[in-house]
Design a protein around this nucleic acid. Sequence first.
DNA 1: TATAATATTGAATATTAGTTCATTGAATAG
DNA 2: CTATTCAATGAACTAATATTCAATATTATA
Lengths: 191, 191
Amino acid sequence: MGIRNQQKEKRREEILAAGLNLFIRKGYASTKITDIAQHVGMSTGLLFHYFESKEKLLEELVTTSISNTMNVFFTDDIEPLQFFENTAERIFDELRNKTLTSKMFVLMNQILYNEATPQSIKAKLEDFDAFTPSIKLIQKGQSAGTIREGNPHALAVAFWCAISSIASEIALYPDTPCPESVWIIDILRKR
Amino acid sequence: MGIRNQQKEKRREEILAAGLNLFIRKGYASTKITDIAQHVGMSTGLLFHYFESKEKLLEELVTTSISNTMNVFFTDDIEPLQFFENTAERIFDELRNKTLTSKMFVLMNQILYNEATPQSIKAKLEDFDAFTPSIKLIQKGQSAGTIREGNPHALAVAFWCAISSIASEIALYPDTPCPESVWIIDILRKR
DNA sequence: TATAATATTGAATATTAGTTCATTGAATAG
DNA sequence: CTATTCAATGAACTAATATTCAATATTATA
């Protein structure tokens, strides 16, 4: 790759970063392409030299960036409650270290919870559905006696809603003190 | 009040209801005034006979409707953990009964977490700040030994993020099974 | 019924913001 | 050194959408 392509790649990442920051703070619809260009320090027109549209920019954030940061691995060979402990701890670690992950949570939630975002983009997030596999794991943990009784779907909702909303809070207000993962795990843990 | 004023009031409420539903599903910015009018079954122009602007419509949702639904009472004369139990249970009750409350949670969060919403509107929500009084209560509960140790601010964040994100989930997907309030209380409860 | 007030419409207007493009300047390859 | 390609600009274009308004229909009241 020539020096020019490196430059181009770097510039693209700057745009992606600025876009992500504005999207999560103002929402996709309220973020002006002019805003993004200004934050990167380029003219509006130039932005279209790098991304063919505002929507494509969002799409790349979703496809590339989310796949890089949002890998929650579901495996069969681990005790269910232990899995949720590990997952929560790993996510909270990233929140404390202020990696991209927390910002990605905000973006994901914005997309998933907004009917206005094009179906094509939502579809890209299907791979990251945490509910379905969580429900099965919760049932397993209930049988094993480590996870409390109750509707497994509702338990999954409680757990993941808590996790993702805390992630959003930290992403948007980095000074907020980060809760401990063990507190959240107690939503699931059987006494 | 004459029959015409009653009609007018009723019409306004229809618009408010349609606006609320669309705002929480598509977000304020992506909701077109035409959409709202169409949902109510009136022409676009007529909507401006009832509300002088899209922003004023939002403002009224915030001022009038939220004050009617979002009353969390903080009092000194109750055991802290008990207060959180009561509050959570009351909120979850309303979620199960699908009152307006859950929708208001979504709207409040959208406003509070979105830099693009005008300061004038955000200011209207200051009265509903739950964090500040919660932190004090949590400290009290920690002294009394009913609430677990840890940063009180972080505990308040964990509790309220969980509550409000679950409320959002239920509001947007009414078929989602509602978690139990006792699960969420275990975020705070000392073992 | 007549008159005034209000409700309603839909087309016209204004504004905002996404996108295009002709042009200029800089870098690179031959 | 020169030609070609790419980076960059900002003004022009366009589409979308909030808002206005003149005209019309409906309703209330005297």
